[in-house]
């Protein structure tokens, strides 16, 4: 391919990184969720209809009313949907072939998106593998691992 460059010769090219260093206030609900992760506990929140939403939301997904009752849920759960990542890009949670999955933790009525280290199918049981150093971020859950032979 030839390109008319208007007599400038080779067109310049350079890497360009667009970066937003967001500093987010977490609020009382997400803050409690992240604080719990740091302590190896997972918290949901009770919705207006009594269902447990996890990760917790500040407002009821159906009615929009403010929610306040934090509820601890389990560290194991069931895969409700999944997708495989065969060629991860920079910044994805695991360097090799992995699975992104929706996991409904025991005691919760909604599913959370996270990474599974391994192959799973819908209905499989998984458990949290905690990060060695936890700092109050969603990555304090290093990954979910399949529970083999369990159901």
């Amino acid at each position: 391919m030839t390109t008319d460059t208007g007599g400038v010769g080779e067109i310049l090219e350079a890497p360009l990184v667009i970066e937003y260093p967001f500093n987010r206030t977490t609020g009382p609900v997400i803050g409690a969720f992240l604080t719990g992760l740091r302590e190896q506990r997972v918290l949901g929140i009770r919705g207006a209809d009594g269902r447990v939403v996890c990760p917790p939301t500040e407002y009821d997904p159906q009615t929009g009313e403010p929610l306040t009752e934090m509820v601890e849920v389990g560290t194991e759960g069931v895969v409700t949907s999944w997708s495989t990542v065969t060629t991860p890009r920079d910044g994805q949670p695991l360097p090799g072939h992995h699975t992104l999955a929706l996991v409904r933790l025991d005691g919760a009525d909604t599913a959370m998106l996270h990474v599974v280290d391994g192959h799973v199918a819908t209905g499989d049981r998984v458990r949290i593998r905690w990060a060695d150093e936890r700092q109050g971020l969603i990555t304090d859950i290093a990954a979910f691992e399949p529970i083999r032979g369990g159901a």
């Binding site: 067109i11 350079a14 990184v17 604080t35 971020l137």
Partner: peptide, 20 residues
């Protein structure tokens, strides 16, 4: 000692060509 703020950096890496 609860978490009240987090850094959530977001970045996209382009190969930029400015044009002629």
């Amino acid at each position: 000692d609860a978490v009240q703020r987090i850094r959530v950096p977001a970045s996209i890496t382009y190969r930029y060509t400015p044009g002629a």
